[in-house]
């Protein structure tokens, strides 16, 4: 029993980092463009398909396929921002409508090209780690490590580089940032592309673990937004913790409760946390 709990705990942590990478994109986009970009889930799904196609279709080695897919999704995100989301700045409702439209278009294109048949990538890294009876597939450990590094890198970039500080300053006070000479349009486009790249990377890594279908984006964007809200929108390390909390709640919850209602366990946590901390767990006070 203990092994099962520990195993599900680890599993939850790993799935949770996938939620976290989406949540990070959600929180960054919201901080800079003032909308929740639900299409990040579709970008993640597209990243998974691209990685699978580059790797199994074109024979490009998996790590390179992930990098290429991430860059391609960054470009998709940039184009979507300049063509569509640019006109929805700081307008949540318009952002939501455009997101939903974009999701429909992306899902329809993927269905046309790759059909509804679930796609499974070849085993990239077979084998497992055994730690005292608990089994962790090697690939899951790699996915966790890569995502953790990217989240830490993002945090460091936001606090220690000029571009990151400009983004953080802009999130606090857009006009004051413009008065410091921050090129606000470039910043917004850059953050939109970076958030898309995070989602694309999440999808590329997902592809090595699970089946790819056109619907996977919906679940992940839902959990990503949950994680971002749970953490208190605007907090980088908070999105990480939020993703892991939801992942673990699902993993451990499904041992004791029917796993068919998996998606609800994270939501229960979200409601409980918001009841006691309405601004989110790691919310930073604005004063």
């Amino acid at each position: 029993m203990l092994q099962l709990v520990v195993g599900q705990l680890l599993n939850g942590v790993i799935v949770g980092t996938l939620y976290a990478i989406i949540a990070l994109g959600v929180t960054l986009t919201f901080g800079i463009t003032g909308i929740v970009n639900f299409a990040l889930g579709a970008f993640m799904m597209l990243g998974a398909y691209f990685t699978w196609y580059f790797s199994d279709g074109l024979g490009i080695p998996y790590p390179l396929a992930v990098v290429l897919a991430t860059l391609a999704i960054a470009l998709v995100g940039l184009v979507a921002d300049q063509v569509l989301f640019r006109f929805t700045r700081n307008n949540l409702i318009n952002g939501l409508i455009v997101s939903i439209g974009l999701i429909s278009v992306i899902v329809a294109i993927v269905l046309m090209v790759w059909t509804t048949t679930p796609q499974n990538m070849h085993y990239v890294l077979p084998g497992v780690f055994r730690v005292g009876g608990v089994i962790v597939p090697k690939m899951k450990a790699v996915v966790f490590g890569v995502l953790l590094l990217v989240i830490l890198f993002t945090y460091a970039a936001l606090t220690r580089t000029w571009a990151g500080r400009a983004a953080y300053a802009y999130a606090q006070n857009p006009e004051a940032a413009a008065l410091m000479g921050v090129r606000t349009k470039v910043l917004q486009a850059g953050v939109a592309a970076y958030s898309a790249a995070l989602a694309g990377l999440g999808g590329g890594l997902y592809a090595s673990l699970y089946s790819i279908t056109p619907e996977i984006g919906a679940g992940y964007i839902l959990k990503g937004v949950e994680a971002a809200i749970l953490a208190g929108i605007g907090s980088v390390m908070g999105s990480f913790a939020g993703g892991i909390i939801i992942g673990v709640a699902e993993g451990v919850g499904s041992i004791f409760l029917p796993s068919a209602y998996n998606d609800a366990y994270g939501l229960v946590f979200l409601v409980l946390i918001l009841l006691f901390k309405p601004a989110g767990l790691f919310a930073v006070s604005s004063r």
């Binding site: 953080y168 300053a169 006070n173 006009e175 004051a176 008065l179 604005s286 004063r287």
Partner: peptide, 12 residues
């Protein structure tokens, strides 16, 4: 411009 209402970055 030093704007009206100071507009410092509160979390910095």
């Amino acid at each position: 411009l030093v704007p009206e209402g100071r507009q410092v970055f509160p979390r910095f």
